[in-house]
Every structure is written in C-alpha cells, then in structure tokens.
Amino acid sequence: MVRLISLILLLATWWLISQFVEPQTLPGPDRVLGAIAAQMRSGDMFFQLGVTLARVLAAFTIAMAAGTAIGLLMGRVKLADRLGDPWLIVLLNLPALVIIVLAFIWGGLTEIAGVLAVAINKLPNTVVTVREGARALDSGLNEMATVFALSRRKYMWHVVLPQLGPFLAAAGRSGLSLVWKIVLIVELLGRPNGIGFQIGVAFQLFDVTLILAYALAFVAVILVIETAVVQPIERRASRWRIRTS
C-alpha cells in the first residue's frame, strides 16, 4: 500500500514537472505511455525487449555459474584464494567500458563478445560474495557430511547450497540490475538491435520520449521478473526459516 502511494507520488511529481518544461526536454507520463503503446503495436517493442532480455539472461547465467564455482573454490582452498585474489582486484577495478571495448576489439562485434563482456563485468562481484559465503560454511555440518560419507552431489545440494542461499540471493539481486545496465552499453556500442541500440538511435534524434519509453518498458520487465520469479524462489528457499523464527 505504502509502496503504491509512493509510486503514484513519483508519477505525480513527474507529471507536474513536465507541465512546466518543453515536452522535448521532459515529456509527461501520458506521452511516454503513448509511445510505449505505439511501439508495441508495431511489434518493435517486443522484439527489442526480447533481444535485450535474452542477452541479460545469458550474461547473468554465465556470471552466476562461473562466479559461484570460482567463489566456492577460493573460499575453500587457500591456494586458490591466494592465486585468484590479484586477478579479482584487477577485474573489480577495471571500468565496464574498458572491458566492453576490449571484448569488441578482440572478439569482433559479435554476440558472444558482447555477452561475455557483460558476464565478465558481473563476475568479480559474484565471486567476492560467494567466497564470503563459502568461508562461512558450518564446519560441524561438513564433518557430519564426511562421517556419513555423503556423495559429492548430495553434499553440494543439501549442505552447501542452502548455506550459500542468502549470498547467492544477494549476488543475484544486485546482479540483475547491474547486468541490464551494462547490456545497454554493449548494445549501444556494438550491437545492431536491443533496447540499448534503440536508445542510441533516439539519442541521435534527441527523442526523450522514445528513450523513456524503452527504458521504462524494460524496468517494468525486470520488475515482473523480480516479483514473479526471484521472490517466489527466495520464499521457497527460506521456508524453514520462516517457520522456525
């Protein structure tokens, strides 16, 4: 309820400001909504949203999977941590733009280079978060798993993953928003389609309405994913906590 009021307040503020400035500078919510509807009717909106979403999901999946594996390794094996740490610091401090530009130079203006560039941007952050979780694994439960000779797969699934849950959720949450912002830059610089490319076109025409239309449509998509996919998964994973707290 409070969230809804807050959202309405935001829209009202936007509308109010748009009354006092040129529509080319800041179009009102009604105009932007109209632009979204027009783009949807032409089918263009769905295509661009789909392309961008596919890139976001691909990069996100790669970064989370590789980041979890590396983070676990670094959190559990001292040598891996020592070896990996300098790499991690370099990656963490490399600007997104540098990684993207280099990826396109070395990999060509290809889909793979683009998606990998986004994944590499997200990777170090996932590694750091998962490593923290791996360091905090309960040694008592590890010993239990050893004594009862749990298979590697069972150990991972029933003992390790539930403990990493909150860390994976944290990495995932910040990851989704980070990844989609970087995907837009990748599309702007080196892809012939997607929301980022469209925004680039609109920028050349100084078409603020179109820029806002595409941006807001994608924010809406991310919101839907967040409430329809991420939150139910989190609720499921923390069922035992809710019942016992």
Binding site: L141, M144, F148, A149, L150, H158, V159, P162, W240
Partner: peptide, 25 residues
C-alpha cells in the same frame, strides 16, 4: 560396514525436515 556418529551437538541440517535429515544419510 558403515560408521554412525552422534556428535556432542545434534548437527542437523536446519533447512531439512526431521525425516529428510535422516533419509539423506
């Protein structure tokens, strides 16, 4: 044959039910 251990603390998996804790091993 196998080894069964009861540790000084119960060391159950908090995120699995009683039955699943037993079944797992």
């Amino acid at each position: 044959g196998k080894l069964g251990v009861v540790f000084q603390e119960p060391r159950l998996l908090p995120w699995r039910t009683v039955e699943d804790n037993v079944r797992l091993v």
